[in-house]
Amino acid sequence: MIERMQVGLFIPCYIDQFYPQVGLATVEVLERQGVEVDFPAAQTCCGQPLANTGCLEDARPLARNFFNIFQKYEYVVCPSGSCTAMVRHHYEQFFPGDHDFEEFSHRVFELCEFLTDVLHVERIDGKFPHRVGLHQSCHGLRELRLAKSSELVAESFNKAQKLLGSLEGIEFSELTRSDECCGFGGTFAVAEEAVSCMMGRDRIFDHERAGTQVLTALDMSCLMHLDGLLRRDKKTMRVMHVAEILAGREV
């Protein structure tokens, strides 16, 4: 019998509290690939909101906790580019010279890149007959390099779009600004409320113009912000996390 790969599921705190369906979709997507998923209940938050505010000493114990909780897993998978980037690119300051951590950090993956790079998934069975606007969440894009950013001169690729594109009936919106930030930015959303909301509305306008029916992203935080604007403005566009679409959820 082949031993099943076991992954530690890292669910960002706001997904845990506000978007449990995204966490469940993540579990299902992974299980369908034959992966054994374990959610360690001792986890809370990676500490990104604290670190990004500049409160590094407050973030430090959370980073330690995270490492202690997840170290034992072969892989750690998270349905958020931003939280994954926090661990992979910004935890090092809390573990200077710690080789165990250094080795561990390479085992932490965002969901889509885990599917394409570790499991080598070529296609996802299912259908999604809708026009989808894929929002490129910034940290997944420019820190994890889950797709080529528009600034760079290189061959084009997009891990999430590759997976989504294998679904039957799916269409993608063509945006005028393919990867502009939505303006969430963590505490930025509140600290710079005016600019943040303008950025969000500009993204929504671009998607409306392109005929987006379902707005999706690798980060629910971007979608929380955009959905907040959509609902306030009484728009019909729906938001869904990529994991939900890959799990075969209906709109």
Partner: peptide, 9 residues
């Protein structure tokens, strides 16, 4: 430094 959404563009 907070007048920034950390988008990295």
């Amino acid at each position: 430094p907070h007048a920034c959404s950390l988008c990295g563009s």
